[in-house]
């Protein structure tokens, strides 16, 4: 009786020890994983990379995309690099993506972490260029516009806009990035002549805001101002409110 009791107790303690070991080990292990997943947030991924969570899960860290890149743009993150251990990334200021039309890196991916459905490199969204207007030469009034000239999606991803100033100064011609066309290839960042690049490519989610659907814009910034103004079609959220507003607070009740 006592023997079987102690045997049972010993068994239960053993089970408890095993469970405790698994739980502590598992906790430490999962902290490590979370830490790394956050570290990846600033990495610029190859074209066709799925969004962060999917990419981090599906990439098997084999480096076949890295070898497929004819410009040695891509690197496989070593332990301690900006990206998650073993995943591909690139640093535009060192070597940008030259946007091969056949996208060999994506074709080489065995797991689909780089989307094989990407067939036009212009549709890639590796990152989004942002301009530091305090250090951009064009914004200081110089005629630089190098980023605009090297941009492979010229006049769509980066346009040069004309900013007239008062009479004694000449006008400014400043580059403006458009997120709907910017692929994040980084050729602008690579070419920027300032000591530290004044135009940089970052993961879109780090720099892009979101208006929110409750703002009902009856216009957009590039809607031409004409007499035949119509609200933007398509998105219901952008139509002006149908009814419900009061013209006078005194209406009806008083």
């Amino acid at each position: 009786m006592t023997d079987s009791l102690t045997a049972r107790r010993r068994f239960l303690v053993r089970m408890g020890q095993g469970a405790a070991m698994a739980a502590t080990g598992g906790l430490l292990w999962s902290y490590l994983l979370r830490e790394q997943a956050h570290a990846a947030a600033t990495a610029i991924r190859p074209p066709g990379a799925l969004d962060d969570a999917d990419f981090n899960a599906r990439c098997i860290k084999c480096g076949q995309c890295v070898r497929a890149c004819p410009y040695d743009t891509l690197k496989l993150a070593a332990t301690g690099d900006v990206a998650v251990i073993g995943t591909p990334y690139f640093t535009p200021r060192e070597t940008p993506c030259y946007m091969c039309v056949d996208i060999p890196c994506t074709a080489a991916c065995p797991t689909g972490a780089l989307d094989h459905g990407l067939d036009d490199i212009d549709d890639a969204r590796m990152g989004l260029a942002v301009i530091d207007i305090e250090n951009c030469l064009s914004w200081q009034g110089l005629r630089c516009e190098i980023c605009h000239r090297v941009c492979p999606v010229q006049d769509r991803a980066i346009t040069v806009e004309h900013h007239p100033r008062k009479l004694s100064k000449h006008a400014m011609f400043v580059p403006v990035v458009h997120s709907e066309a910017c692929t994040g290839c980084g050729m602008c960042e690579d070419a920027c002549p300032t000591d530290k690049a004044a135009i940089r490519v970052l993961p879109p989610r780090l720099v892009q805001g979101e208006i929110g659907r409750h703002y009902r814009l009856g216009w957009t910034i590039d809607t031409p101002v004409t007499q035949e103004f119509k609200p933007a079609e398509g998105e219901g959220g952008r139509e002006p409110p149908a009814a419900g507003g009061l013209d006078y607070l005194n209406e009806g009740g008083l």
Partner: peptide, 23 residues
């Protein structure tokens, strides 16, 4: 949501870094 051993495996690290650059 990530391959847990692949992210910490000394085997993958050693082999990968021998081929793709030491970290």
């Amino acid at each position: 949501g990530v391959a847990a051993f692949e992210w910490v495996s000394p085997i993958s690290m050693l082999h990968r870094e021998l081929i793709f650059g030491i970290g």
